Amino acid sequence: MLEYNIAFLRRGEHLLMLNRSKPPLLGLWNGVGGKLEPGETPLESVLREIGEETGMILGEEDVHFGGIVTWEIDGRMAGGMYAYAAEAGQDGCGSMPRETADGILAWKPADWVLSPDNRGVAGHVRYFLPPMLQKTAPAEYRCIFREGQLLTCECLSLDLSLYT
């Protein structure tokens, strides 16, 4: 079982992003999420994290499991996270941008988030987020790092029986 989750909330053509004030990925824009608590399923955890970090209360029907994102660092598997996309609707979240304990939340244009020239967004996001937003079949997105640099992100098939 993986230890972390991440969610990308969409409202129209915008994504709710968090500019992280803590490592890892300090100063970069990413989705919201966090660590699974003991006894939580990945879905329960991501719904709790969305509520804690944004103030929005979403239900199971609001989120789409996009798969898992794993890290291979210098030839060794080093962890991963469950990844979700969600429709935010028009309610909740308050005024934006907003500073939180984890960083600054703001709605960003999806095109800006996914631009290959954007160095302010966590580098692996542009690989796994587009298929998740299109609600394609869940997959494993294996991010391969060498000497601290992201080389590529491979899209691998995922045995869903392990995650449902």
Rank of each mutant, 00 (worst) to 15 (best):
D111V: 11
L58C: 09
Y82E: 05
I6W: 00
K22W: 09
Q134H: 11
L16R: 00
W112K: 09
L16T: 01
G66W: 00
I6L: 11
L160I: 09
C93N: 02
G92A: 06
G51K: 12
I68Q: 05
T152K: 06
R142H: 13
N118R: 12
R11K: 14
G80F: 07
R119E: 10
A88M: 07
T54W: 01
L43P: 01
M17T: 06
D91W: 05
E140P: 00
E140R: 15
G33V: 08
G148R: 03
Y141M: 08
G92N: 04
A7Q: 01
Y82A: 04
W112N: 11
I73L: 15
V125G: 02
V113G: 05
P109F: 07
P138G: 06
L158T: 03
L9M: 11
L162M: 13
K35D: 14
T70A: 11
W29K: 12
A137F: 09
L15S: 04
K22L: 12
T70W: 03
F145E: 15
M81Y: 10
G51V: 00
A88P: 02
S21V: 06
R119D: 07
P97F: 07
G120L: 11
R146F: 11
P130K: 10
E37D: 14
L26E: 15
G31Y: 03
G67K: 01
I6H: 00
P24G: 10
P130T: 03
W112T: 08
C155W: 01
C153W: 02
C155N: 05
N118L: 11
V32F: 03
G51R: 15
R48Q: 11
A101W: 09
T164Y: 04
Y4F: 15
M77I: 08
R48A: 14
S95H: 08
C143D: 08
M56V: 12
V125Y: 03
P23F: 05
L43M: 13
E60Q: 13
D74H: 05
G103D: 05
E87Q: 14
W29C: 03
N19L: 14
T152A: 09
S45A: 15
Q134D: 13
R126P: 03
I104C: 08
L47G: 01
N30R: 05
G75I: 07
A78I: 04
V113Q: 04
V46L: 05
L160G: 07
P38Y: 12
L162P: 00
T100V: 13
G79Y: 04
A86Q: 04
A78T: 12
G55A: 13
M77R: 13
I50A: 01
T100A: 12
H64Q: 08
P24M: 12
M56H: 05
N5W: 00
E44Q: 15
G67M: 03
S45T: 03
P38N: 06
P116N: 09
N30I: 10
G89I: 04
E61F: 02
R48G: 13
I104A: 01
P109G: 10
G103K: 00
L114Y: 02
L18M: 13
L129W: 00
I73W: 03
F145A: 10
I73Q: 14
G103P: 02
I57H: 14
D117K: 08
H14V: 03
D117R: 12
G89C: 08
F8D: 07
I104W: 04
A7C: 14
G94V: 05
I104Y: 01
S95Y: 05
A86F: 03
G80Y: 04
E52H: 06
M81K: 14
L18N: 13
P42Y: 07
E61W: 02
P42D: 10
T70L: 06
C155G: 04
